[in-house]
Every structure is written in structure tokens, then in C-alpha cells.
Amino acid sequence: MINVSLHGRGGQGIKTASHIIGTAAFLSGSYVQDQPLYGAERRGAPISAYVRISRQPILERGTIENPSLQVISDDSLLESAADNPLEKIRESTVVLINTSLTKSDLASKYSLKNPLIVFDLAKFDPEIISRPTLGIAVAAATCRTLEMDFDLVRQSMIKELSGIHLDKDDIAMSIDLAKRVYDMVTHGETVMEVSGIRESGIFEMKFHNPAVSTCSITATGNSMLRERGRWSGFQPIIDYERCTKCMICYVYCPDSAYTFDSKGYPVVNYDACKGCNICQTECPVKVITLVKRNKT
């Protein structure tokens, strides 16, 4: 059985990607399970989806802990300490990732020994990482890596994209994008079954004082430990030469990401900024610009 684990962000079309891959495999005659992992995470937040593909009936359920192929839609996910998809791979897992980095740079930056396939979607559209079409491109790259015929991808896309009410023109454009991505991804790594067994003995739980064992949080305000700043590929940069210290950016920030320096200039906490860009839109003197995160 081939386990494909897809990692992206809410709003990038990762669920659609898993459905396109699942349907393509289904059309090829395989047994398939696909599943988005719904959680409390929101638009921009890291999310995942799974596809299991097998020639035999699938005797598995739930999340994938032994991915054959780990698909990463957005390399900013690798910056996150809490939700890093590289934490979830096994030795022989093939990693397929959308990044502008080269294979060797990526391997050395993250000390990765796994088989790697990189593709750079920014070539098609520099802002694709904040669009739902990203999922379509990721699905095409995944199907190519899994050596599925493009005709299956095309049939699957027509079925899935009409299912989410895309019109004919949008579907044709999506297929065109998918074909270009499909052709761009160089294949060379074989995706194989990875064993899922990990031994862990049974823990005998003892009674704990209810002060401990009641679900409450006494470390109030501790969510700061959890950086959300990697939710967006973009971040605001302030031109302090022209900033009038009017505080509008501070006032309208939903995430408490602004503070002030000793001279009263606004300062962005990039670990807290989710990149909603309200500050840029509302800035009355237009001194805030958005910059792609990994270029800063």
C-alpha cells in the first residue's frame, strides 16, 4: 500500500488535491481511501490530507503515520516548530516539495537524508501559495511522482472540479496548469510501501490530583509559545522614514502582533503576524508593503 500524506495550509485547496489524487488512483482500478484532516485550524493554518492507494482492500483507518510520499505544498511549513511535516516522515519516505530551493540546499538546510523531489510553482505564479489553485498543481505533481498517466489526472480533475462547481473555462485552465506542472516534475524516486509498526508498551495510568487532571490551563497567556507567523507567505514591512505613528496598524491588528518601540514607531512581531494584511490596506499614508516571507 502506498500512503500519501499531503501538507499545506487552509485555503490552498489541499482537500481538493487529495480528492484529485484519490479519484485518479480509483479510476486506475486501485482501492483508495482519501481523507482531509479537519481540525480547529483555520484559513492559513497548517492542515493535512491523506490518500491510501492499494491493489488489495485497505485495512487501515485514520491518519497516516508511515507515509510513502510526503507532499509539502509550501516550504514555509518547514519553518514551523509545532507543525513541521518533516517531523512525520520515516527513513524511506519520499519527500515531494514546492520550493525555490534546490535539492541539495534543501537537504543541507534541514539535514534531510530522504529521497527528495523539488518543484517550484512560483515559476507559474509568484502568488500561487495563497490561492486555492495551489492544490491542483500539487495534485498534478503528486500524480506524476506516483507515475499515474496524465489522462487519469485529467479525468479525475473534470470529476472533482465540477463537483466543487467550477465552470468549464476554469476547469480547462486548471487542467492546463496541471499539465504544465505534471511535465515539469522530474521523476526519479520510487515511492514504496513503508512499514507502519512502531512498538510502545501499555502505560498503567494512576489517579492524579484533580488540580492536575482537570482540563484547565493555569499558564495563562501561553499561546505566545505557539507561533502562527508562518501562516502566510507574506509579511508586512514598514517604511519608518514615512511612518506618522498614527497607530492605525496597531489598532486594527486582529492578532495583537503590533507593539511600539521607544520612539512610538510600530513594530511587527513576525511570529504573531498571520499575514492578513489589514494593516497594509488600512495604513492612511501607505507606508506598509508586503514582502514574501522567505526573502526577508
Binding site: A40, M205, F207, S213, S216, I217
Partner: peptide, 20 residues
């Protein structure tokens, strides 16, 4: 100050609180 009745989205943590 305390946050009470907090949601738990991790199934291991849920199992812990329930079994306690």
C-alpha cells in the same frame, strides 16, 4: 486566572482527562 473547560483536540490528552 485560569482557562477552564478548554477544548482538547488531541486524542491522547482527551483519553487522559476522561480516564482520570
Amino acid at each position: 486566572p485560569v482557562s477552564m473547560g478548554v477544548s482538547v483536540l488531541d486524542s491522547s490528552a482527551y483519553s487522559y482527562f476522561k480516564y482520570q
